[in-house]
């Protein structure tokens, strides 16, 4: 393992060099495209210049779109022929992302590559192309609780990068990137650090099995009226992996169309609708309970680790100010017998 320091101009050189061979993807500030007028959208997108890389603020949306796009065509139909689309960009991809998000993509791996023993080929072909360039994260952002979720650390990265005010430090784990950096950089002893303390204390429930009565606990009732089922907690979440399959038709064609999969989410209406009209979890409180348990309880039963990585984006984006981390704490309090009468 070797480390190098760069000034920003040198880093730009390396960036440009990498850009010739790799697709570069990372957090990007898009001016004026935020939810409110005259606010910016920080999202994950293709990067053309090092200045595109937003390293100071947390992104509104997660990097999951690089492996799990919001809308992906799985087949083109021509009459009764099914054709799988080629990837529009076949290059290996460098993703700039934080440790929580690297852990988040590993959670997606559990579902798409491990669950059910069949690998999802659409996910796999995108996933195989990724090289993680870890953006060092030493301080929690607002709403972050990666330490509690044990997702503050990772050693799954090709390089780790510290963006300091005057210089950029890079530690290289994947030797294939050594050359690109070594030619420009100055040797250093940089070693990435990780967040040690969450901005907010989150206590995970300490139970093997959820008691049946917690499913109907009044704890969930407040979310019936608070949650508006907008689905932002799902769409912003790096680990939410649910999708729906939809077929579309080309309006001017008799027999052409596509099968696509699009993001779905357990907070959205229609998520459990069955043909014939029956559905489950009509109440938003039930959806909150379902999501909470998946993120911090039942995923663990299946994969021996929690799904939630504590990135806190669900809290960042909720228009109704529902705090998921507070919900976890309320749940833990209930399970430990305390604060039963708290609002």
């Amino acid at each position: 393992m070797q480390s190098f320091d760069f000034n920003y101009q040198q880093f730009a050189e390396v960036f440009a060099r990498l850009g010739k061979k790799f697709r570069l993807f990372g957090p990007k500030r898009v001016p004026g495209r935020g939810r409110f007028s005259d606010t910016d959208l920080i999202t994950y997108a293709d990067l053309q210049n090092p200045e595109d890389l937003e390293t100071a603020e947390k992104s509104y949306l997660s990097p999951k779109s690089i492996v799990f796009p919001p809308d992906e065509t799985t087949f083109y139909f021509t009459a009764d022929q099914f054709t799988e689309p080629e990837l529009s960009d076949n290059r290996e991809t460098i993703v700039f992302l934080r440790p929580c998000d690297i852990n988040g993509i590993e959670r997606l791996d559990r579902i798409f590559l491990e669950n059910g023993k069949v690998k999802d080929p659409y996910y796999q072909r995108r996933r195989e192309k990724l090289h993680f360039f870890m953006i060092e994260c030493r301080e929690s952002f607002e709403n972050c609780f990666c330490v509690a979720m044990n997702a503050n650390r990772t050693d799954n990265f090709a390089t780790a990068i510290r963006f300091a005010p005057e210089k950029v430090s890079v530690m290289i784990q994947n030797e294939s990137f050594l050359e690109a950096f070594a030619e420009v950089g100055k040797k250093s002893d940089f070693v990435p650090e990780f967040v040690k303390k969450d901005s907010k204390a989150v206590n995970l429930p300490d139970v093997e099995d959820m008691p049946a009565d917690i499913f109907s606990d009044s704890l969930w009732d407040e979310y019936d009226s608070r949650c508006i089922a907008c689905g932002r907690c799902n769409t912003s979440c790096v680990t939410c992996s649910c999708f729906s399959t939809v077929d579309i038709f080309y309006p001017d064609s008799r027999n052409c169309g596509e099968r696509r999969r699009v993001w779905d989410g357990c907070h959205l209406d229609g998520f459990t609708d069955m043909a014939g009209g029956h559905s489950f979890r009509k109440d938003k409180g039930d959806r909150m309970r379902f999501k909470t348990f998946h993120k911090i309880y039942d995923f663990r039963k299946r994969f021996s680790e929690d799904m939630c990585v504590g990135c806190g984006r669900c809290d960042d984006v909720c228009p109704e100010y529902i705090s998921f981390s507070s919900c976890i704490n309320k749940l833990s309090d209930r399970l430990s017998g305390g604060k039963k009468d708290e609002e």
């Binding site: 004026g32 495209r33 939810r35 007028s37 949306l61 907008c230 932002r232 912003s236």
Partner: peptide, 17 residues
């Protein structure tokens, strides 16, 4: 009015600058 921009959970709708 921009209500669609406010409602969209994936920022598919944004405002012309």
């Amino acid at each position: 009015c921009g209500e669609c921009v406010l409602a969209c959970p994936t920022s598919a709708w944004t405002r012309n600058q």
